[in-house]
Nucleic acid binder design. Structure first.
Length: 919
DNA sequence: GCAAGGTC
C-alpha cells in the first residue's frame, strides 16, 4: 500500500499558519504543541491536486537567521572599524530562534514535501531560503514548493495551494546583499562615531545619561535625520521679505461675492506694486474678459498602499504611523483586511471587487452605499496609482465586521477599520461632479481671476466623510464684456514665511520618495531619531533636530561626505539591489562595488575626524572644560527658571552670562534648542513677579521678564522699562524686530547650509521673481511714460497734510466700523490725535487735502461713511462723494465745502483750516 | 555596544 504524502507547510508567523490551516481544513485542523511555544503545529488531511495528503502546518517568526561578524570581529576594540569592510560575515540562527529551528527540523524529518507560505515579498523569499536551509539539513530529500497568496481568504488560499511554484532565488540574494551592505556600513560608522565622540565630551552634562552613549549610524536612519536637519537649515536660512499685492473684492447687488486674485500674485517691489495699484485706482472699472464654465470631476481616492494609508491615518485619524501599523496588523491577522504591507495601489482586473463590496451591503453605516455600488448605479472601476509589487493587492477589507461584534476593539482599531472600508467603497464609486466657473477680469490692464464651484453630485464623497471639495458657491453671475465696479481695491502687504518644520506626514512622504526604509519600517526609523536623541517632536508633532543630530550631519557635510546623510543614499543602494532581484546583475558584483564605495567614504571620514570633533565641539563642551558661556548649545550660564519648556517639559531658564546680554534657554540644552534672545538695547533682565496670562498655564504658568532698555537705542513708542512675556508678548517681538536680538559670540545666525542658499517665500523662487520683476518693470516704464504725457492728467502725489503742509499722510484701513474702507491719516505719531485724523480716500478728489476738506471726526461710520463704492471707484463713479452741483459737500453735515469754507476741527469754526487756526 | 528587515 502506498504511503500517504506528508507535507510540511511553513508560514512566516503563527497567525497565518493558523488561518490558512483553518481555511483549507474547513476549521477541522488539529492543533498540537511543539518545542517552540509560539509556533504550534496544525494538522489536517487535504487533497493536493487530487492527491490525498497529510498537511502539517507550522511557522517561524520572521527571519530565522541573522547576519553578523564572527566573534573575532564582534568586540569593538578587536579590530579597526575599517576592517569590517573585509571581515567575513556569517549567517546563523541566533540563540532566541534555536527552538524555532529545532521545530522545523523535527517536522521536516516526517515529511516529503515542504511548502513555503512565507509572505510574498523580497524578505519573505529570503526567509523561505532560510527555512529551506534548515529543513534540508534535517531531510535532504524534501521536495520544495512555494505558495503565492495575497489575502487570507479561502478562495485565494485554495487557488494558491493548487498552483504551487518554486521560490525565487534572485529575490532572496538581493536581500542577502542588502543585509551585508547594511551591516558593514552600519557597524563601521557606528563604531567610528561612538569611539570618536564617547570619551571626548561630557555627555552627562548635556542630558545624555547613558554611561557609554551610542551614536549609531545606519543607511536609513541617517538619511532620515538628514531630511530633518536639511529642513532646519532651510528655516534658519530664510530671510523674510516683504511683498505687496493688489486685493480686489466684488459684492454684487444680489448679494453674491468673490475675491479677485491678482494674476501677478505678489510683487517684491513696493514702488512697482504701488504704481500698478495706482493705475487700477485711477481706472477701477473692471471688465470681464473671459467666463469659462465647465463640468469638473473630482476623482475618488486611489486604492490604499501602506504608506498612503499611514499618511491618511495621520491626517484624518491622527494616528501616528507606528501605532496605525500595529492596528492594521491585528485587523489583517483577524482576517478583516488584506495584507497591510504593500506598495500596490492598483487592483488586478480579475479581482472580484463586487464580491468584496457585497460583504458590506447590510451595514447600517455604509450598507446603502455598498448596495448602490453592487447594483451598478454607483459602481466605477477603481483607478490605479501605477504601483504594483506583484505580491499583494491594495489594502482593502476582506470581511465585514458588524458594529456589535467589534465593541471590544480598541476605538482606534474601529476607526481604522471604518476608514479602510469607506476608502475601499469610495474607490469603487463614481467620481464627484461639480460645475466650475472661471472668470477673468481686467482692471486698468491688470488681470484678475476668480473661480466658483457648485458641487452637483457627491457620489464617492457620500461614503467618505473626510473628503472636502468646495469653493465659492456664491459667485456673482458674470458675462463677457460686462463691467462692474469692485467693492474693494486695496494694496495689501505681507512677509514671506520660512518653510514649516517637518511633520510626520512630510517625513513619510520624503522617505517614500527617496525609498528610505520599507512600508513596515518607515515609522521605526522616525522613532529611532527620537530614541537616539537626534531629533525632537514638539507639542504640535513637528520634528526638529537636536544639537547632536545637527552636529553629526554637519560633520559629514564639512568633510565633503554629504552622500552619507543625504536622502539619495538609500535609493542608490536599493537601485543596485533591485538589479540583483531581477537577475540582471550577480549579487557578488553589486556587493563588491558597494563595499568598495563605502570603504572609501570610511577612509575619508576617518582621515577628517578632527572635523567631526570640531563640529560637535561647537555644540558640546569637551570633557575637560566647556564651551564658551552662551555659545550655541554650550553649557548654559547660571540662571533661574521662569516656567516649563513646551518643547521638552524641562525648565525655561533666564540665563545671566558673566558677559553679554541675558537670554532665555531650556535647561535641556543642547538637546532641546528652545531659546529666546533679547533685544539689543537690553541693559538688564530679571524675572518679574507677574505670570503670563496665556503661556504654559497647564504647566504652572510662565513668569514675565522685567527689562531695562537703553533709552537712546529704542524706537519711539517704547519705554525704557518693559515687562513682557518673551513667548507671546507682541510688543516684545516688535522690539526684537525693530532692534535685532543680542546673541552670544559664535552663534550662527541665518547661515545657509547644505548648498540650500537662502530660502524665501514659498511658491516662487528668486528666478521666478526676477522674471516677474522684469516684465513688470517694462510695464511700469510704459505707464510712467504714459502718465508723464497724459493730457489733463492730475499729478497725483501723496495728499498734503493740512496741518503740516507736507505729504506726511498715510493710507490706513483699520477702521472697525468700515472694514476695507481706507482713509488718510497723519503719520506723525505724536500728532495723530491732534492733526488731521482722517479723510476717506473714496471721498478724496485727488486734490491736495488742504485744498479740499479733511474731516475732523474719527471714522466711525457716521452719515458720510455710509456704504459707498470702493475707494477710487467712488471717486471715479461719482466724481467725488459730496460733490453736489459742482460744490463739495461735507458728508457729515451736508453743508457745502470748498477751499474757502474749511472747517477747523480745533475751534470748530468754518472759514479756515486747523493748520491756520488763529484760535 | 553597531544595521535593517522580518515578527512577538
Amino acid at each position: 500500500m502506498q504511503r500517504t504524502l506528508t507535507v510540511l507547510n511553513v508560514a512566516e508567523k503563527n497567525s497565518i499558519a493558523k488561518q490558512v490551516s483553518a481555511a483549507l481544513s474547513n476549521n477541522s485542523a488539529t492543533r498540537g504543541s511543539t518545542c517552540s511555544n509560539y509556533n504550534p503545529l496544525f494538522s489536517f488531511p487535504y487533497a493536493l491536486n487530487g492527491m490525498p495528503c497529510e498537511m502539517l502546518f507550522t511557522s517561524v517568526a520572521g527571519h530565522l537567521m541573522e547576519l553578523d561578524f564572527p566573534e573575532a570581529f564582534k568586540k569593538w576594540h578587536s579590530c579597526s572599524p575599517l576592517e569590517l569592510y573585509g571581515a567575513p560575515v556569517l549567517k546563523c540562527v541566533p540563540q532566541d530562534k534555536k527552538l524555532v529551528e529545532r521545530n522545523l527540523k523535527e517536522q521536516a524529518r516526517k515529511c516529503q514535501w515542504l511548502v513555503l507560505w512565507l509572505d510574498c515579498d523580497r524578505e519573505g523569499e529570503n526567509i523561505a531560503f532560510e527555512v529551506i536551509d534548515v529543513c534540508i539539513k534535517a531531510n535532504p530529500r524534501l521536495l520544495i514548493k512555494r505558495a503565492k497568496f495575497s489575502a487570507l481568504v479561502r478562495r485565494e488560499l485554495e487557488r494558491s495551494v493548487q498552483n504551487l511554484g518554486v521560490p525565487d532565488e534572485n529575490l532572496s540574494k538581493a536581500v542577502d546583499a542588502r543585509q551585508e551592505i547594511d551591516l558593514r556600513i552600519g557597524a563601521s560608522f557606528t563604531r567610528f562615531q561612538t569611539l570618536l565622540l564617547q570619551e571626548k565630551f561630557n555627555w552627562e552634562e548635556h542630558g545624555i545619561h547613558d554611561e557609554r552613549p551610542i551614536f549609531s549610524y545606519g543607511p536609513c536612519q541617517f538619511p532620515t535625520l538628514g531630511l530633518i536637519v536639511q529642513r532646519q537649515w532651510e528655516i534658519q536660512a530664510h530671510v523674510a521679505e516683504p511683498f505687496w499685492y493688489i486685493y480686489a473684492m466684488y459684492r454684487a447687488p444680489e448679494g453674491q461675492s468673490c475675491t479677485l486674485h491678482w494674476q501677478r500674485d505678489r510683487l517684491y517691489d513696493h514702488v512697482i506694486a504701488t504704481i500698478l495699484y495706482e493705475t487700477c485706482v485711477d481706472a477701477p472699472l473692471a471688465t470681464v474678459t473671459k467666463v469659462d464654465a465647465r463640468q469638473k470631476l473630482r476623482w475618488p481616492p486611489l486604492p490604499l498602499a501602506t504608506l498612503s494609508l499611514q499618511k491618511e491615518a495621520i491626517t484624518h485619524l491622527r494616528l501616528p504611523g507606528e501605532r496605525m501599523m500595529k492596528l492594521a496588523e491585528e485587523l489583517y491577522q483577524e482576517g478583516f483586511i488584506s495584507y497591510p504591507r504593500t506598495e500596490t495601489d492598483v487592483f488586478d482586473p480579475a479581482y472580484d471587487l463586487k464580491a468584496l463590496v457585497r460583504e458590506h451591503v447590510n451595514d447600517a453605516r455604509w450598507g446603502q452605499h455598498a448596495q448602490r455600488i453592487d447594483s451598478g448605479e454607483m459602481w466605477a472601476a477603481p483607478r490605479g496609482g501605477g504601483h504594483d509589487d506583484h505580491a499583494h493587492p491594495p489594502i482593502h477589507p476582506t470581511r465585514w465586521s458588524a458594529p456589535d461584534a467589534n465593541q471590544g476593539w480598541d476605538p482606534n482599531k474601529r476607526r481604522l477599520y471604518e476608514f479602510i472600508v469607506r476608502s475601499f467603497l469610495a474607490s469603487c464609486s463614481k467620481p464627484a461632479v461639480g460645475f466650475e466657473t472661471q472668470v477673468e477680469v481686467t482692471i486698468a490692464a491688470e488681470t484678475f481671476r476668480t473661480t466658483g464651484l457648485m458641487v452637483k453630485e457627491r457620489n464617492w464623497m457620500e461614503v467618505f466623510p473626510w473628503a472636502r471639495w468646495g469653493g465659492n458657491d456664491n459667485l456673482p453671475v458674470f458675462a463677457v464684456n460686462q463691467t462692474f465696479m469692485p467693492t474693494e481695491l486695496l494694496l495689501k502687504d505681507g512677509m514671506t514665511q520660512p518653510p514649516p518644520k517637518m511633520s510626520e506626514r512630510d517625513l513619510i512622504s520624503a522617505m517614500e520618495r527617496h525609498g528610505i526604509g520599507t512600508d513596515a519600517t518607515v515609522a521605526d526609523h522616525i522613532q529611532k531619531q527620537l530614541d537616539r536623541g537626534y531629533a525632537l517632536k514638539d507639542a504640535a508633532q513637528l520634528f526638529s533636530p537636536t544639537a547632536l543630530g545637527e552636529a553629526l550631519v554637519a560633520s559629514y557635510h564639512k568633510m565633503g561626505l554629504s552622500n552619507l546623510w543625504q536622502p539619495t543614499l538609500r535609493g542608490a543602494i536599493e537601485h543596485n539591489i533591485t538589479e540583483v532581484a531581477r537577475g540582471l546583475r550577480p549579487k557578488q558584483e553589486v556587493l563588491d562595488e558597494a563595499v568598495q564605495h563605502f570603504r572609501g567614504d570610511y577612509i575619508a571620514a576617518a582621515g577628517k575626524q578632527a572635523m567631526m570633533l570640531e563640529e560637535v565641539g561647537r555644540f558640546f563642551g569637551p570633557r575637560a572644560g566647556g564651551g564658551g558661556p552662551g555659545e550655541a548649545g554650550g553649557a548654559l550660564p547660571p540662571g533661574d527658571p521662569i516656567g516649563a519648556c513646551a518643547s521638552c517639559g524641562l525648565n525655561l531658564m533666564l540665563c545671566q552670562p558673566a558677559e553679554g546680554t541675558p537670554f532665555v534657554a531650556c535647561s535641556g540644552a543642547p538637546l532641546c534648542r528652545q531659546r529666546v534672545y533679547f533685544p539689543r538695547p537690553t541693559l538688564a533682565a530679571d524675572i518679574s513677579d507677574q505670570p503670563c496670562a496665556t503661556c504654559q498655564l497647564d504647566r504652572g504658568g510662565l513668569r514675565k521678564i522685567s527689562f531695562r532698555l537703553r533709552r537712546a537705542a529704542i524706537p519711539p513708542g517704547f519705554e525704557a522699562d518693559m515687562v513682557a512675556c518673551v513667548l507671546c508678548d507682541q510688543r516684545f517681538k516688535d522690539l526684537c524686530e525693530a532692534c535685532g536680538t543680542a546673541r552670544p559670540a559664535g552663534q550662527r545666525n541665518n547661515q545657509a547650509r547644505g548648498g540650500g542658499g537662502q530660502a524665501r517665500g514659498r511658491g516662487r523662487g528668486p528666478a521666478g521673481r526676477c522674471e516677474a520683476r522684469a516684465s513688470v518693470l517694462t510695464r511700469c516704464v510704459e505707464l510712467l511714460r504714459g502718465r508723464g504725457g497724459r493730457q489733463g492728467g492730475m499729478a497725483r502725489g501723496p495728499p498734503v497734510c493740512p496741518r503740516h503742509g507736507q505729504p506726511c499722510l498715510v493710507k490706513t484701513s483699520n477702521s472697525a466700523a468700515n472694514p476695507g474702507r481706507t482713509f488718510f491719516k497723519c503719520a506723525h505719531p505724536s500728532e495723530a490725535q491732534e492733526c488731521l485724523d482722517f479723510m476717506w480716500e473714496d471721498e478724496w478728489n485727488g486734490q491736495p487735502l488742504g485744498a479740499s476738506r479733511a474731516r475732523r471726526t474719527e471714522p466711525r461710520g457716521r452719515g458720510g461713511n455710509r456704504g459707498h463704492g470702493p475707494r477710487g471707484a467712488g471717486r471715479q463713479q461719482h466724481g467725488g462723494r459730496g460733490n453736489a452741483g459742482g460744490r463739495l459737500v461735507d458728508a457729515a453735515t451736508g453743508l457745502p465745502l470748498d477751499a474757502n469754507e474749511g472747517s477747523c476741527y480745533k475751534c470748530g469754526q468754518r472759514g479756515h483750516w486747523a493748520n491756520a487756526c488763529p484760535n
